[in-house]
């Protein structure tokens, strides 16, 4: 860990200013990821701006009839919030499938969006990694890539986004509110994270100095038919190999609307509206679900140790859709 200075911001504007002025400064909130990375010398900020005391701690209604999650609400408080449980049980379930109780108490909703990949090579400064050191090469492509991406990869990077929560937020069409030196703006969740392309060092589209202030959940929460299916190498406290967040709006056996987002397979939560559209007005059957899986995984490519993910994801999508469908019957 390098040497850095520490300041605590009391207002959003001050925080934004401090990080805008200092290129090597970073925000810190829950700290669960940045401190981990700093101890590995992967992140080396020269200043940390503590934003934990900013007034972004509320869960409240938003103008669209949905819910607004303050950026500094902890993952645990979000998951156990009565309104989240009632209206967005998919989000609650997804958060609780991630990390550990301790980490969920620390990690914030805003911070969760900024989790960096678990790629072994990204974490190990002894090895080349384009995400950590652009131009140094990707060790994972021809190396050990069990946890790596099968979709949206580039020749530069095959890392995955490790968050669970973000998979649910993607499925729910959440909107991220940010504030920066140039004022406030909204980022649709699908635009928040990016694919690696030729600039794998950038995980998302947030600009320097911008701070996430809140996350908006739209009114529709798919509270009746949903599931989060997470497949991993042990029963708990492990990152997803493949995960699937599903929200269904059903009319009897017919699908009015479907949302399917995948985790663990790409540099961002993976969604494909045209795949979901295949279910619109169709019966909720395994056969139709398989078509969705085919479409979602079109172009999937394995790199050796992660090739199994293609088949696993296919089966997981079908299973998750079945699970979500069967909820109403209970």
């Amino acid at each position: 860990m390098n040497s850095f200075s520490y300041t605590r911001a009391q207002e959003v504007d001050t925080a934004v200013r401090e990080v805008t002025q200092d290129k090597a400064a970073k925000f810190i909130a829950g700290g669960t990821n940045i401190l981990d990375l700093m101890k590995e010398n992967v992140e080396r900020p020269d200043r940390l701006v503590d934003i934990t005391r900013l007034p972004l701690q509320q869960v409240e209604s938003n103008p669209e009839g949905g819910l607004r999650l303050g950026a500094l609400v902890s993952n645990a408080d979000t998951a156990y919030h009565p309104e989240v449980i009632e209206r967005y049980p998919l989000l609650s379930k997804t958060i609780l499938a991630g990390a550990s109780a301790q980490l969920r108490n620390m990690a914030t909703d805003g911070g969760n969006l900024f989790q960096r990949t678990r790629c072994y090579y990204f974490y190990d400064t002894a090895t080349p990694c384009n995400k950590r050191e652009p131009g140094s090469g990707c060790s994972a492509i021809n190396g050990y890539n069990r946890i790596h991406a099968i979709l949206g990869t580039s020749e530069q990077c095959i890392a995955t986004h490790p968050s669970d929560m973000c998979v649910a937020l993607a499925a729910l069409d959440a909107v991220v509110n940010v504030k920066g030196p140039e004022g406030e703006r909204q980022i649709k969740f699908e635009d928040f994270h990016r694919l690696p392309g030729n600039e794998p060092q950038y995980d998302n589209t947030v600009k320097t100095g911008e701070i996430v202030t809140s996350i908006d959940l739209p009114a529709e929460g798919f509270a009746k038919n949903y599931t989060y299916l997470k497949l991993r190498d042990r029963a708990s406290y492990a990152f997803a190999l493949v995960s699937v967040a599903v929200g269904l709006d059903l009319d009897g056996d017919t699908v009015r609307e479907a949302r399917v987002a995948l985790g663990g397979v790409a540099h961002k939560p993976w969604r494909k509206p045209e795949a979901e559209a295949l279910l619109k007005g169709q019966k909720a059957t395994k056969e139709n679900f398989r078509k969705v899986a085919d479409a979602l995984l079109q172009g999937a490519k394995g790199f050796g140790s992660n090739t199994f993910k293609i088949e696993l994801a296919h089966r997981a999508i079908v299973r998750a859709l079945v699970m979500a469908t069967e909820m109403k019957k209970k």
């Binding site: 520490y6 700290g31 669960t32 401190l35 645990a76 109780a101 301790q102 980490l103 108490n105 620390m106």
Partner: peptide, 9 residues
Amino acid sequence: KRINSCLTL
């Protein structure tokens, strides 16, 4: 609340 003190400044 329980937390990991190793990831806390």
